[in-house]
Write a protein that binds this DNA or RNA. Structure first.
Length: 264
DNA sequence: AAGGCCTGCAACCGCAGCGTT
DNA sequence: GAACGCTGCGGTTGCAGGCCT
């Protein structure tokens, strides 16, 4: 954790300005801006002892001069156990693209299928990477043109790279997709029964999967060392060796995409 | 070295949905 | 059923650090 040491005391707002969860006998002042280590500690200890929920009470009884919403956000996006930080892996990128194709900007729903990732992180990824590339390609991120580019060009390339990486890793990391820590049943939307296998084999229910099957981008992961038994698989649990943000948005790929778009 | 620009991310804001009174 | 409060979601903003000139 890093704290800048900057005094954020100036970022205080009277609770009377924004709907106070506190008593009105005295004007409570809430703090805004980055969280301090001490605040994190207070929040973590309180939730560890009392559990999540009732966020306004958390804010009040933990001794935090924060709104309930702020406490909730800090917990969910940062303090919560199993929150994964750091680079979005290739597999995660692929999954985000696929799920966004199904559901659009339903970030929290998408986040359900990326263990340890928060909706905020996924949203930031989408905006800072994908939207940026759409701009670079001079098309709207929601346009059919760009969606087709993602579906028919980008995702197959991602799969190729994942496949190549998994093959090169198979000696050192033969259990890439198998995680004993989180059960697939933890995924609430059982209608889709989502995992990487579904994604690459076209087994999902969304339009992308069917089209992806047609276009053959499902040729990859189910083969080789990563083949797995369905029920054992946790989607995209990271083992963490070498799938950092090896970004696909290289000049070469952008050029390729532009050619594909020009052909349409 | 310094200033400006760019990027990524943490956090805030507004709104909608839901439950309770 | 209206009013209110709480929670969660998606959009947006602002800051810190890196990069470039």
């Amino acid at each position: 954790m890093e704290y800048s040491g900057v005094n954020y005391d100036h970022m205080m707002t009277s609770l009377s300005d924004c709907g106070s969860p506190y008593g009105s006998e005295e004007e409570m002042v809430i703090k805004k801006g980055p969280w301090t280590e001490e605040e994190d500690s207070l929040l973590f200890n309180y939730i560890t002892a009392h559990g999540e929920g009732h966020w306004n009470s958390v804010a009040r009884f933990a001794g935090l001069k924060r709104t309930g919403k702020s406490c909730r956000l800090r917990w969910l996006n940062y303090l919560r156990p199993n929150v994964r930080r750091g680079n979005i892996t290739l597999q995660e990128q692929l999954l985000i693209l696929d799920l966004h194709c199904r559901w659009g900007n339903r970030w929290s729903k998408i986040a359900q299928y990326l263990p340890g990732r928060t909706d905020n992180e996924i949203k930031n990824y989408w905006r800072t990477r994908v939207v940026k590339q759409a701009k670079q390609l001079k098309c709207d991120v929601n346009s059919k043109q760009f969606r087709d580019a993602l579906r028919f060009v980008w995702m197959p390339r991602l799969i190729e790279r994942i496949q190549a990486s998994s093959q090169s890793d198979s000696n050192t990391n033969p259990t890439f997709f198998a995680s004993p820590h989180v059960q697939a049943s933890s995924i609430s939307d059982s209608a889709i029964s989502y995992n990487s296998y579904d994604l690459i084999s076209g087994g999902g229910s969304g339009s992308c999967s069917s089209t992806s099957a047609e276009n053959g981008y499902g040729s990859g992961l189910s083969s080789g060392s990563n083949q797995h038994v369905e029920s054992d698989i946790q989607p995209l649990e990271q083992v963490g060796n070498g799938f950092g943000e090896a970004d696909l948005w290289t000049d070469e790929n952008i050029w390729f995409l532009q050619q594909q778009l020009a052909d349409h």
